[in-house]
Design a protein around this nucleic acid. Structure first.
Length: 262
DNA sequence: AACACGACCTGGTAGC
DNA sequence: TGCTACCAGGTCGTGT
């Protein structure tokens, strides 16, 4: 579920339902430390920010709940804090009877309570967000010139660009017609510009779809981006009709169309 | 410094 | 049916 577009949708949804409420209680079963309860209880929820895939719940008193959903986590408000579902790892009970839950079947997600003043240092290594003004073609050209990594692995590296994951990297490379195994150290400016606009195109689209899906009353967990290559091994390419391939890269699956992506 | 790899966890599914 | 092996959208620590 959670790459940047999904995390953005989680944040937008959370923002509308919890701002201004007080944390009355907290239970931490897994995915966090008891410090969350010590630091959060009695504090007011000010706002919810996001950087890359990191969610920052700002509390008054200079405390921030830093959350990462990793592979299978989800963070959402529930109407009654006495009714938390299975797989709830952390529950924040709020002053109006509602709650915020961190749920994760695999228990890989993490939440920490840390001083707001330490957040910037903690996230300082993250690269620019792909939809921010800092992510320019020039930035991409300069950083690619100094890297010997295959482009797939480069784009997965959160210190280069923050927010992309396996799905949207695959889809961006397909849109830009670039082979994920290629090193772009000496690639033409034109090709890198194509990649830049591919990433922005895919993510703009994905943020919009994720937010629409999450704001509808149904089960947002079922949101799935309509992928051209990701998860479509051996199926026909939507452009050329050739077979989509899956190969291992960096210990995980890469999907691409050998016919279209050069 | 840059990169590769295993560990962290659990649940679903394909194959025997 | 039941077992095993493998797969899953991420990140971190360790080793080369």
């Amino acid at each position: 579920m959670p790459e940047m577009p999904e995390v953005e949708a989680v944040c937008r949804k959370l923002r509308t339902s919890v701002a201004g409420l007080i944390v009355d209680g907290a239970s931490v079963w897994r995915c966090g430390t008891p410090a969350i309860a010590e630091l959060a209880i009695g504090k007011k929820l000010l706002r919810v920010d996001r950087k890359g895939k990191h969610i920052l719940i700002r509390l008054d008193g200079g405390v921030t709940l830093h959350t990462h959903l990793r592979m299978s986590g989800n963070l959402r408000a529930i109407p009654d804090h006495r009714m938390s579902p299975a797989n709830t790892r952390i529950l924040l009970r709020l002053s109006n009877g509602t709650g915020i839950i961190l749920e994760d079947p695999r228990a890989l997600a993490r939440m920490d309570a840390i001083p707001t003043s330490e957040i910037d240092a903690k996230l300082s290594k993250l690269g620019p967000e792909p939809l921010s003004p800092d992510f320019t073609p020039d930035y991409l050209i300069t950083t690619l010139r100094s890297s010997r990594q295959p482009i797939k692995l480069f784009l997965m590296d959160q210190t280069r660009v923050s927010g992309l994951g396996n799905i949207y990297v695959a889809e961006s490379l397909f849109r830009a017609a670039i082979d994920p195994r290629k090193v772009l150290r000496t690639a033409s400016v034109k090709k890198i510009e194509r990649l830049h606009s591919g990433i922005i195109g895919v993510l703009t689209n994905a943020v919009q779809s994720a937010c629409n899906a999450f704001s509808s009353p149904g089960h947002f967990e079922e949101f799935e981006f309509p992928c051209a290559v990701y998860g479509r091994e051996a199926e026909p390419c939507l452009e050329c009709g050739g077979k989509i391939r899956r190969i291992p890269q960096g210990g995980r699956s890469t999907y691409f169309c050998p016919g279209c992506q050069k």
